[in-house]
Amino acid sequence: MNIAFPAERPAYHADRPELTFDAVVDGARVGCAITAEALEDHFGAASLREPDLVPAFDAHRAAIEAAAARMLEETRGQPVVLHSGFFRLYGEH
């Protein structure tokens, strides 16, 4: 499975709250998300607000994308949402 992540800004969704970003899996775009709770608990985001979440995502993008890639492998390329529990179980890196 070939997984890549375009260098695009994540989208903020206040109603969930989470950031979404795309992966490209074997040439097809697949949606990924990380919850605000995970960004607060594991990546230093100060609040659920976009101005706090996006910099935390940017600062830890490599670890977040590695986690998403792991989940994409496990789900055989289905969309994934990274919750705080994933990082408690597997660690940030």
Results as ranks from 00 to 15, higher is better:
E8Q: 13
V24D: 07
G77V: 00
A28P: 00
G77H: 07
M71G: 04
A56R: 00
Q78D: 13
D52F: 06
F86I: 04
E18L: 09
E74D: 14
M1F: 08
A33Y: 05
A36E: 07
G27V: 08
A46R: 15
R49D: 15
P17Q: 12
V30M: 07
S47W: 11
R76E: 13
E37N: 12
A62N: 08
A28T: 10
E73C: 08
A7G: 03
F57H: 01
I64E: 00
A38H: 02
P51I: 07
M1D: 06
P10I: 02
V24W: 02
I3D: 04
R76M: 05
H83L: 05
F21C: 03
E74I: 10
G77S: 07
G91Y: 03
D52Y: 08
G85I: 05
P6A: 08
V24F: 03
V25R: 02
V25P: 01
L48R: 14
V30L: 08
G85C: 06
L48C: 06
M1P: 10
L89C: 12
P51C: 07
A56G: 03
E18W: 08
V54S: 01
I3C: 08
A14S: 13
A23T: 08
V30C: 10
I3T: 11
A62P: 00
R88H: 13
I3G: 01
D58T: 04
F86Y: 15
E92S: 11
V81C: 13
V24M: 12
G91M: 04
V80P: 01
L82R: 00
R76V: 03
D22Q: 14
A63S: 14
R76P: 00
H60L: 03
I34M: 07
G27D: 12
G44N: 12
H83M: 10
A33L: 09
R9K: 15
A28S: 13
H60I: 02
R16F: 12
V81P: 00
G27H: 09
R16N: 12
P10F: 00
G44Q: 11
